[in-house]
Design a protein around this nucleic acid. Structure first.
Lengths: 185, 185, 185, 185
DNA sequence: TATGAATGAGTGTTCATTCAT
DNA sequence: GATGAATGAACACTCATTCAT
């Protein structure tokens, strides 16, 4: 029971911090803000994370965990085109399910400073994805699978960026279909 | 002469600030840092910009100016494919000419907080570009010019993002050609 | 058995605290440090001592106890010179047996703040010693026994200070003999 | 003029800090306390000293400066006994002129932690003095000049310690004469 | 106009102490 | 009695901004 409570509190802090960091920014959110939002005392934060930076790290890892889970579900034998389509749909769903969080991730990965850590995490994930996508293009008989894969991922990222930064009336579905038509047929 | 000096100093501050913000981040760069880098006294910064945020604004405007200049050069009558190719090449050149600055721009546009201003600027520019691109796809007889335009711009942004975040051994040229082949033929 | 355990735990805390205070300093040692070193929970400390300051007090008293025990052993009828020599030898042995602890005591006695308590304890002890030493110098027929006693104790303290603050290659024995020759012949 | 003011302020901070550290202790004095006592803003402290520890260092150096000045005045050709007497008188005067400061110095030199720096400074000074005293005892034809010198300095330190820790009715003069009679005849 | 010392609100972090379990 | 999570006041230090010179 104790452990459940403990986990709950840690989760509460993580969630509060993620929401604040994502909505106000990392530097403009103080640890006091996080404590207030999480409903705990300032000092308690340091029972769970030993610094603000460490809290950020934990957030990033938890976001990537969600993302990794989704990827594992997806790895099944299919035709290359079906597979690529699944990737597109999965990523769109992931990002649409919480734009703020993903905007935060993208922002971090572009920032210098504290965040080198996050860049590495993301880049590693990207490399793994890239390998997978390259092999799909090889199966398709692409003339230059690496370039095709980069184009594919670049397009996906660019579209997701548009999703992230645009308002609600954005034609997400059409865009997704457009990409599927262009890359998975 | 005074006015020349004045302009020089303002430029020096802008340049120093841009370099520092781009390389160390906005929040992790202090006004003292900027003053030192620019070779002026801390207090002098406030003769040219009334706040740190205002200095940031001025930087953004100056970057967008460069970008706009390039765009104006480019608008000439051509076939749609040639025109789109020119956009691609222009943007690649722009971003490659100073990755750090553009990384900074992308990062800002994804950040909440102080930076809403920059998002609007960028979004406005994007909308204008979008209109132009849409009309090119109309000329090409596209079935859904708006979606095609978004795909085009998304792909371009995504690839540029890859350029920005990747190391020097990145196959920029091949990628550019790949996009041209896929979108301008 | 319970009471034995209890005593053991209290002793363990005292010893841990003394070692840490002596080696790292009072203010730079946290109650958490003490708990960890003593192998008990942080909260348990407060079952035995009601505050950090109180813990310090208990330590001081325990050190002075050791010191008092030694003195009691020593009070036996002898010639004044032999008696004074015994004092010198006893103090040297005491201090040499644990330099860190005695360094800590001397340091405390010189510090303002929390430690007024310790100063009084020490001063009281010193006064008692002084009385004893004065009476020995009276027996010796000293012209000014009080001054001689202060000189004696001052010299002893000063030499012990040298012992405390110096490294291992220090000529302790020679110094002790030197003082004995100068004051007990 | 500016520089005079600047020096004045730095001096004011040093003096305020010394008084507070000496009367309340280093750890129990906050930088806010120092600022208030010195009549400046908290932030201003950091225009002159880059940390609390650095402020302490500056204080120690300034105290040792005073002490060194006094020593330089003293080095003149004399008989060994006269020279040693001068040392005794000089040290007594120095310490009596500001007991609190010297109590602080002695306390620091016995404390672990931040203060290793001060110990080294003091020990170095002591070594230099020791050399001088040893050579005086050599001149006197002492059988073991090193031991005699250590005894001399130990006695002096021990007596000064008594001066430092005792109240105002203390027979300083008699004690000083006592030591002179015992060591300089 | 140029300067940089002065300011003080605000930051991340620590830690003695409490108390529900 | 034993525990260690929770607390919040206090700390050293930063930095955008001001203003007397």
């Amino acid at each position: 029971m104790t452990s459940i409570k403990k986990i709950d509190k840690k989760e509460a802090i993580l969630e509060a911090a993620l929401n604040l960091f994502a909505s106000k920014g990392y530097y403009t959110t103080s640890m006091s803000d996080v404590a207030k939002e999480a409903g705990v005392a300032k000092g308690s934060l340091y029972n769970y994370f030993f610094s603000k930076e460490n809290l950020l790290e934990a957030i990033l890892l938890s976001i990537l965990d969600v993302s990794n889970d989704l990827e594992k579900e997806l790895v099944q034998t299919q035709s290359p085109n079906e597979f690529l389509q699944q990737i597109i749909e999965g990523q769109f769903e992931l990002v649409c399910s919480n734009r703020d969080h993903w905007r935060f991730m993208y922002a971090l990965s572009l920032q210098p400073g504290v965040f080198e850590f996050s860049i590495e995490l993301l880049q590693q994930r990207i490399k793994e994805n890239m390998k997978e996508v390259v092999s799909q293009f090889e199966k398709k008989g692409s003339a230059d699978p690496e370039i095709d894969a980069r184009l594919f991922i670049g397009t996906l990222d660019g579209l997701l960026l548009q999703v992230i930064t645009n308002l609600d009336d954005f034609p997400v579905e059409n865009l997704k279909q457009g990409m599927i038509n262009k890359y998975c047929k």
